[in-house]
Structure formats: C-alpha cells, structure tokens
Design a binder for these strands. Structure first.
Ligand SMILES: [Mn+2]
Ligand SMILES: [Mn+2]
Ligand SMILES: [Mn+2]
Ligand SMILES: [Mn+2]
Lengths: 217, 217
DNA sequence: ATATTTTTTTAGATTTGTCTAAAAAAATAT
DNA sequence: ATATTTTTTTAGACAAATCTAAAAAAATAT
C-alpha cells in the first residue's frame, strides 16, 4: 500500500544525485521533500532494507541499480504524461508538472506502452527533458546552458533546467520557447546579463534566466 | 493523505445503494471491498464524522448529499478514463476497468474538463454506463435487460450490467457488442435460455448472459 | 418465548509514514 | 586541540487503515 511514497523518495534521490555526483545527504532529501530529517532517516532505512539504496550511517545514500531503474521508470512515466497533457490535452508547459506527479504513479506497463505509441515515441518532454526508453536508456544529446555561448553564435532552444511555473511563463512572454532560434550577442559587463537576438529583435536577459535555458548549436 | 481509500468506500456504497434502495449493510461493504467487517465499521465512523454518510449503529449507511456528490464525481472520472483508454489508446473494453480504478483518483478538475473535451463529451463509457455531467446529473435513458424483450422484438445493444473481463470477452466472441442490432426470437422452456437473431444467424444464449446485456428498442 | 445463527461492534494490535525533542556524530572554527 | 555548529540518528508518539478475537445486538428458527 501507498507505494508512491517510496517512488517519490527514489525520484528525489535520483534528481539530487544527478546534480552532484556523490551520496545524497539526509537534509537534502528532507528539504526537497518538505519533510523532517528524522522522517528521511526512517525512510532511508526502509529503502535500504528493500535494497533500493546503499546506505551507511552518516554517509548519505546512493541508489542501487534496482533503485535507479525504478527511479528512471517513474521519470519516464512522468515525462510521457507531460507530453500527453501538452500535446493531446493542450495544456501549457507550465501547467503539467503537478498533474504528472500524480499520473506517474499509475501502475500499468501496457498503459505506458500505449501512451508512448499514441504520442509517437517522443524523445523529450515539454521542457526538453529526455524521456528514457523502456530499458532506462537516455538518448545522448548535447544540450548546454545558453550563457556558455560565444559571441555571434547561433543556437536553438531545446530545454530548460528550471521548471517553476513562474519561470516558464516568463520565457513564454519573451518567446524563449523550445525550437526557437536565437543568436548570442554579448555579455553586459556591469551585471552579467546577456544580449541576444530573437525573432529579429535584440533583447536583454538576466544571467539567471540564461543559465536555465538549454540550447544546442 | 491517502484520500483514495475514502473515495473507494464512497464509490462502493454508491454502487451498493443503486442495486437495492435501502441502507447498505456493513457486511455488504466488507465483501465488496475485500476487507473485514470490523475495518468497515471503523471506516464508516470516519465517513460519518466527515458527514459523508448517514449512520446509526446496526442500521447500515446511506450517503449524504455531499457523499453522493463525491461518489458520482469519482464515477464520472472513472468512466471518462475508460473512454480515453478505449478510444484514444485502443484498449479493449475488458482491459480498462483496473487502470481506470487508479486514474479515477487523480485530482485535477481542469484535467477532467480537458479529457472530456478531447473525448468529445461522451455520454456513455465503453460498457454503456452513463457518464454523469459536471453537476452529477445523468442523462435519462431507457435501457433494459435483453431477457425482458418479447417475441420478434428488435433491439440494439447499448450496455452491460456485469463488467467482469470473462463476461466481456465472451460477449465479444458472440458479437454481442455495443451498437449491435439483435432480434429476440423466443425463450427455451427447458432451461430458460434465449434464442436471438444476430447478423443473420440465430444463436442461443443463457439467461445469465441475456439479463446482463442492456438494450434499447 | 427461547435458542440459535448471523451481523455488527468493540477491544486491542500492527504497519506505514509522519512528527518533535533529545542524543550522538561529524564538520568547522578558533 | 578544543569548542562550536551542523548534520544525522534515536526515542517515543501519533494518525490512518488495517487485522483478529471476543462481545453485543439483531434476525431467524424452533
Ligand atoms: Mn515535471
Ligand atoms: Mn518536464
Ligand atoms: Mn469500470
Ligand atoms: Mn465501465
């Protein structure tokens, strides 16, 4: 019963591991899950007993192969549902995350197969995040933050690394949406903001925004 | 947390009330939910405290207006998801119930609105069960069991009152699917089985089957 | 009217996931 | 090297949903 609590822990540990490649600390999980460190310790012990994480007291956790596989599968489901919500039900990209957080826990492999087929085997979700295949494999791509471009380099927006609704809405206002072509002009010394050309206009965006936009050249 | 336990109780009480129009007994719920009578008594008290059921000890329960509304909303969601699974993802009608039992608990009114629109405002689910509208109102229809037809009456299959996979699969084998036109021939005295004409063939079906097929004239 | 059977409720436990407060360990600063 | 701060764990409790066994009430049979 209630197996989606475990699923949410695995997902959180997975994402925290991606960011920094070392054992995830109890407090980091607690923060990310809006719960207490004590609760996390309790849960870690359960996950460890189920062989879903490697755990030694005071040393943080890493996912076992089994735990990793489970986490990736949930992420796969989450992202496919997001594609469904945007492509089939016409939600906007800033409206789908919370609903997908519920849908990702529905258990039925054949459902996900059919959904994937219906969506025509998408490679990325509405935010440009890669959708792992049935075996948990991610396609190899070359996405990097917009702020790492050089003068006069052209690039195409392919994703975002921040998913808050306010950020996504702001991007839409600026036409900084997936598929959009942009040209890097220069960095403004004073505040590190960035000038870019988009749809024949030159605009200025903060470094904060720039580094959360992923592009490919 | 875990509000779908409550939702499942409400749904079960709703369905049991439909069958016999009187307070639902503890044991009936326990049977239907595969749980113990003691657990049901516990839960009934909680539902009663939340004013979702009317309860007096030893007298069974009925849904309050609030409880009824909630139950109907879950049924609405269940049936819309079943339509989605059959129409959009091409599942067969005997494959969708268990998945819909999970999907029905996803919380998002706008999701259901969009789903309903995507499905083109269906009136019935894949089993011919009516889909209540947003206000919980059911369309008024005139469905009755096939076994109540008279000699030579023509009718169209519009639903089923039994949802087991084995029953649905059997119906499909016999071409007894929704939309199919049939003609009632006669009842066989010996075993109360029924002769019908379907697609220019005459076939015999048991009374058990006949009474679980809903038709309209 | 009494006895028997069936149904329902209570009593007391258990499991899951959570909490706060206190103790222990590890990391950091002086 | 010691003291201070931060992080993590333990101890003990709680709410939700479940269980079994026993008691109580209601229904049924004689
Ligand atoms: Mn998301
Ligand atoms: Mn996403
Ligand atoms: Mn169903
Ligand atoms: Mn149905």
């Amino acid at each position: 019963m209630q197996s989606f609590t475990i699923e949410n822990y695995l997902k959180k540990i997975y994402h925290l591991t991606q960011r920094e490649n070392k054992p995830v600390q109890t407090n980091a999980i607690a923060d990310g899950m809006n719960t207490s460190a004590a609760s996390v310790t309790d849960m870690i012990k359960k996950l460890s007993a189920k062989k879903l994480v490697n755990y030694t007291k005071y040393q943080g956790v890493t996912l076992t192969e089994e735990g990793n596989k489970k986490a990736i599968n949930i992420i796969r489901k989450h992202r496919l549902w997001e594609v469904f919500l945007v492509n089939t039900l016409h939600f906007k990209w800033d409206e789908v995350h919370e609903i997908a957080d519920q849908l990702e826990h529905v258990k039925s492999d054949v459902l996900i197969d059919r959904l994937e087929k219906h969506l025509n085997y998408p490679i990325t979700d509405p935010h440009g995040d890669l959708i792992p295949d049935k075996n948990g494999l991610f396609k190899d791509v070359n996405f990097k933050p917009l702020n790492l471009l050089h003068q006069n380099q052209e690039a195409t927006i392919v994703g975002v690394s921040e998913h808050s609704s306010s950020f996504l809405k702001r991007l839409e206002e600026l036409n900084l949406i997936i598929g959009q072509k942009i040209t890097f002009i220069n960095v403004v010394d004073f505040d590190n903001s960035i000038e870019i050309k988009i749809l024949d206009n030159q605009i200025n965006i903060s470094k904060e925004i720039a580094k959360n936009i992923l592009i490919t050249i």
